[in-house]
Computed example of a mutant assay.
Amino acid sequence: MSILSENMRYLRGKLNLSQQKVADHLSITRGRYAKYEDGATEPPLEILLKISKYYNVSIDLLLRINISKYSIDELVELPDNRIVLPIKVDHEGNDQIEIIPQKASMGYLNGYSDPEYIEGLDTISLPFLKGGKFRAFPADGDSMPPYKNGTYIVGKYVEDLSDLKTDRTYVFITINDGISYKRFQFHEADGIWVKADNSFYEPYKIPLAEIREIWEFACSISTKEYAPDEFSERNIQSFIAEIKTDIKQIKEKIGDKN
């Protein structure tokens, strides 16, 4: 029995539906549907699309993941009919946050939609982060002070481009750059403009076709301390400016909730 047939059987049973009722919705005979569910034959694309819409589950998910392992209520749907993100919790009910390894950050571009890759990542739980899907990404380079190499940016998954807010920071997963942490500026018809907090770097445009995921800054985890000589007047000013920005974002989030 294939993953698809197992998922079809599981979804039908979960909704307490008969084979005849599902077959009627698909405009096929019950006998034909039974062969799909038993794994004797595979449904053609047009029937697969109907099955996907009927159960409101992506085709990618139907074909690749045993969804009986997850609660449907704990899945975050991705655009373009791609795989969904399971929101996993620990034994105390806290959301588990996957950690993308520093040395393997570029490999994330190949594995971000692979459930086996994601399930193999180490996880942490931060009880103060609730209400969404979170993931930790390594900071790299000097474009976003005061975050040093070794810092992890914990991001909340952004489900729609319209949710992006000007001057807030996000982790962008793109075809060309892999993982990058930048400040969103504005939309264009075919892309979005972002900038680094380090004024040495010019703002640039990310084509929409290159974007795979976007994660909004939720918090940061520093793994390296600053050396005394790093706290020059310029660095302190940048550090204070970043704190002010974070405080502004927190106030805006509180205002949005109210």
Rank of each mutant, 00 (worst) to 15 (best):
S105M: 12
S105Q: 14
G107D: 15
Y108H: 13
L109A: 10
L109H: 05
L109S: 09
N110P: 00
N110F: 14
G111D: 12
Y112N: 08
S113F: 11
S113K: 08
S113I: 11
D114Q: 08
D114L: 11
D114Y: 07
D114K: 07
D114H: 09
P115L: 14
E116K: 09
E116Q: 06
Y117T: 03
Y117D: 10
Y117N: 06
G120K: 10
L121P: 06
D122Y: 11
D122K: 15
T123N: 04
T123C: 12
S125N: 12
L126V: 15
L126E: 10
P127H: 04
F128Y: 14
F128P: 00
F128R: 08
G132R: 08
G132F: 02
G132M: 08
K133S: 07
F134S: 01
F134D: 01
R135T: 15
R135P: 00
A136R: 03
A136F: 02
F137G: 02
F137A: 03
F137W: 05
F137H: 02
P138S: 11
P138F: 05
D140K: 10
D140L: 12
D142L: 13
D142P: 00
S143W: 04
S143D: 14
M144G: 07
M144F: 14
P146C: 10
P146E: 06
Y147V: 01
K148P: 00
K148F: 11
G150C: 08
G150T: 08
T151W: 10
Y152E: 05
I153Q: 01
G155D: 04
K156L: 02
K156E: 04
V158Y: 03
E159D: 08
L161W: 13
S162D: 13
D163N: 14
D163T: 11
D163E: 15
L164H: 04
K165V: 15
T166E: 14
T166V: 12
